[in-house]
Amino acid sequence: MAKADRNQVLRQLPLVVGGLAGVLLLFNRLLTPELTQSQARSDALGVILSAVLILTGLLWQQVQARSPDAVELIGEEGFELAPSLPDAVRTELAWASHLLLTNTATRSIVVWYQGKVLLRRGILGTNPEVKPGEILQRVLSKQKPVYLVNLTLYPGRIEFDFIPENTQGVICQPIGKDGVLILGANAPRSYTKQDETWIAGIADKLEVSLSYYLNDVAPAEI
């Protein structure tokens, strides 16, 4: 059974148990020829417990968020690095992308730096080139990440033709002033605040390495 199905069963369990208990108490009362004081007290307690279970079930239906529906991204899985990259940069990009793919909802990764695509990994889009549109330009100019929680709702999604066309959520994280780390997820609203903080830390680490090996700038102390 899928995780979403298990959560649905758990949300409905108090309703089912509370309703069943209430029905059994009713039948027990109807089939009892003579009601004693002790049974009356037991019935009253049972009714209260059944009501609490039903109320809990109703609250769970409203309060507990349903897991976002994931889709299977359209495209082929792959791992591409730009040619002629130093071995240290290749290792750094491989390490960072592996962590993101295995520890977050990320299914597609693109690293764009100094006008070039340095890495594509995960489910690949059909277009291997990145031409920064309005959203990526804003990320670069303001040096602040953009998280599109549900990409299908944004008209600007057309600029993300370099990731799978049915990508559900996108994070664009600046890599200094020269690059962007673009992450695509297969479900909307799938990144947590902790994920966003961690992604920002990885992007900062990439900035140090890329600026050092590609620009001959000494890395800052971390």
Rank of each mutant, 00 (worst) to 15 (best):
residue 36 T to N: 03
residue 54 I to R: 01
residue 122 G to V: 04
residue 43 D to G: 11
residue 62 Q to G: 00
residue 132 P to M: 07
residue 12 Q to L: 14
residue 33 P to D: 06
residue 11 R to K: 15
residue 85 L to C: 08
residue 2 A to N: 14
residue 57 G to D: 07
residue 117 V to H: 06
residue 76 E to C: 02
residue 65 A to D: 08
residue 71 V to F: 06
residue 12 Q to R: 09
residue 48 I to K: 10
residue 98 H to K: 13
residue 8 Q to N: 02
residue 5 D to L: 09
residue 138 R to W: 09
residue 26 L to S: 09
residue 64 Q to L: 15
residue 17 V to P: 03
residue 134 E to W: 09
residue 23 V to A: 15
residue 74 I to Q: 04
residue 108 S to W: 07
residue 97 S to Q: 08
residue 24 L to I: 14
residue 15 L to G: 08
residue 20 L to V: 15
residue 129 E to R: 12
residue 95 W to P: 01
residue 56 T to P: 05
residue 136 L to D: 04
residue 51 A to K: 05
residue 24 L to P: 00
residue 139 V to F: 06
residue 9 V to Q: 12
residue 111 V to P: 02
residue 38 S to M: 02
residue 38 S to Q: 12
residue 94 A to G: 06
residue 26 L to G: 06
residue 12 Q to V: 05
residue 91 T to L: 09
residue 9 V to D: 07
residue 43 D to V: 02
residue 104 T to L: 11
residue 62 Q to R: 15
residue 80 E to A: 06
residue 30 L to Q: 11
residue 12 Q to P: 01
residue 38 S to A: 14
residue 14 P to Q: 08
residue 41 R to S: 12
residue 16 V to L: 15
residue 88 A to P: 00
residue 107 R to P: 04
residue 89 V to Y: 03
residue 106 T to G: 00
residue 90 R to Y: 02
residue 95 W to F: 07
residue 99 L to Y: 09
residue 8 Q to A: 11
residue 25 L to C: 09
residue 81 L to K: 05
residue 62 Q to C: 05
residue 19 G to M: 13
residue 31 L to Q: 10
residue 48 I to V: 15
residue 87 D to A: 12
residue 31 L to P: 00
residue 54 I to H: 05
residue 103 N to F: 09
residue 31 L to K: 05
residue 6 R to S: 07
residue 19 G to F: 13
residue 135 I to L: 14
residue 34 E to P: 04
residue 29 R to A: 10
residue 41 R to I: 11
residue 3 K to C: 03
residue 11 R to V: 09
residue 101 L to C: 07
residue 109 I to H: 04
residue 93 L to S: 00
residue 12 Q to W: 08
residue 94 A to T: 10
residue 71 V to H: 02
residue 32 T to P: 02
residue 12 Q to N: 08
residue 62 Q to E: 12
residue 114 Q to K: 13
residue 109 I to L: 11
residue 53 L to K: 07
residue 7 N to W: 09
residue 24 L to M: 13
residue 122 G to H: 01
residue 37 Q to P: 03
residue 24 L to T: 11
residue 117 V to S: 06
